[in-house]
Simulated scan of single mutants.
Amino acid sequence: MISKKILTSVATSVALASISFTTIGQVIPEVGSQIQITQAATSAINDYINNNNIQPVSITNQEGTFSYWNGYENGVGKPEGVVIHETATPGATAQNEATYFNREWSNIYTYVHAFVDNTQILNIKNTDYTVWGAGPTANAKFIQVELCEVSSTDAFARSVANQAYYTASKLVQYNLPFTPGTTVLSHNDVSKRWGETTHTDPVGYFAKWGYSMDQFYDLVGKYYNQLKGNTNSGSTNNNSGNTNTNTNSNSITVNNPNGNYVPLVSMDGDSTRFTVNKVMNRALANKSPWYTDKIRVVDGVTYRRVATNEWVDQSYVI
């Protein structure tokens, strides 16, 4: 155990290019049919971020008072991803929250790595070491960041841009892939997966702004790709004809000239062997644009990911 470090404040800035968003998620039933045609729909918040050229702020490192210096289950400097929280304290800034936690953590038995609001990303614990934010299992695996509650659309957009950027930057820092639900989880996901807490954040707070974790994943993915320099950073495995990579081209348009919609598939398995399954109740509208973040080749067929586990055959891309 290392004693309390001297309080320091170091600002680090990363320039980001302008980023556009084409997101997924709006499902529109087709009248008279059992299949749902999924239309590409821009997230109002992500679209606002793009249209107003909102850029994340730099990360400020301000070491706090949390005096435990324990490595993750895989060792010091080896987190497995990031857990997304929100503070449930309307109007409190990142600095307000940091001050409170630095004073009270030994009484409330809670601490996180960072707080984010619409003007600041404040990292208060070296992310090489664990904190107390989401139960013992998640604490031993993940970096943890809290989003502060704000009161306007503009402030919310800026705050989630900052939180998404912080999340992406930590994935890149520790050479982790961006895998929604695995390397980036909500506290709600953690509660459901391990049952050691009952928190559901940030789902409810996001919903107040018409936002969702899927839309947040889109934003993280954009910053992740930007920070990686738009290079292929995914893992590759050629066993059993499977190849899994990230893609540089993040916007595609799909069309099925022989049908009324573009079919989707899901995949089961792992990096050594994937099984492709037809999605029976959802499909993509013809000539609709989609954000895609990953390419996967299974048995010689190339697929592009358009949702967490929904893929489209490359042959439908125009």
Rank of each mutant, 00 (worst) to 15 (best):
N309S: 15
A140G: 05
F142G: 12
G135C: 00
D117P: 10
G71T: 01
N102P: 07
F156W: 14
N250F: 00
Y261S: 03
Y109W: 10
S9Y: 09
P90E: 05
K208P: 02
G300P: 15
I37E: 07
Q62E: 14
R273E: 07
D268R: 13
V317K: 04
G25I: 05
N51T: 15
G32F: 12
I318C: 02
E196C: 00
M1W: 11
K4T: 07
T93Y: 01
T65Y: 05
S212V: 05
H113P: 07
G259I: 02
F66L: 06
T275N: 15
A157K: 13
I37L: 10
T89Y: 11
Q226P: 02
R158S: 06
I252W: 03
D268C: 03
V131R: 07
G229C: 04
S152W: 03
Q26W: 01
N126S: 13
E104P: 01
P136G: 12
A11N: 08
Y129D: 10
S169L: 08
T243P: 06
A17S: 06
N255C: 10
T153M: 13
P79D: 07
N248I: 04
P29G: 12
N126R: 13
N255K: 12
M267W: 03
V297T: 15
F274M: 15
G75H: 05
N256E: 02
N256Q: 02
V76E: 12
V82C: 13
I124Q: 07
A15D: 10
M267Q: 14
E146Y: 06
N230K: 08
Q173A: 10
L171H: 09
I2A: 13
L284T: 02
Y111Q: 10
E73C: 03
T292K: 01
F274C: 12
S315E: 10
T22Y: 09
S266Q: 15
L227Q: 07
A138H: 00
Y72V: 11
T198V: 08
D313R: 14
T182A: 13
L219W: 15
V150M: 12
K78I: 11
K228H: 05
T130W: 05
P79R: 06
N102Y: 04
W105H: 01
Q144I: 13
Y211S: 14
T253K: 05
V276W: 11
P90K: 09
E196Q: 00
R103V: 09
Y316K: 13
N123K: 09
W69R: 08
P29I: 08
A114S: 11
G133V: 07
W69C: 10
V190F: 04
A161W: 01
N248H: 04
S233H: 09
A88G: 08
Y261M: 06
N46M: 15
V83M: 02
I2L: 15
V10A: 07
V301A: 15
L122S: 06
G269V: 08
I2N: 11
V262M: 00
Q120C: 06
N230Y: 10
I108P: 01
R158G: 03
I35E: 00
F274R: 15
V317I: 10
V131G: 06
A285V: 05
I124C: 03
Y129S: 11
T167H: 14
D154A: 07
L284N: 04
S233L: 06
T302H: 07
P90Y: 12
Y211A: 12
N96C: 14
A138W: 00
I121Y: 01
I6Q: 05
N126W: 05
W105D: 00
H85L: 14
T231H: 10
G32C: 13
S271R: 12
I2W: 04
L227A: 08
A92Y: 11
T42F: 09
D47H: 14
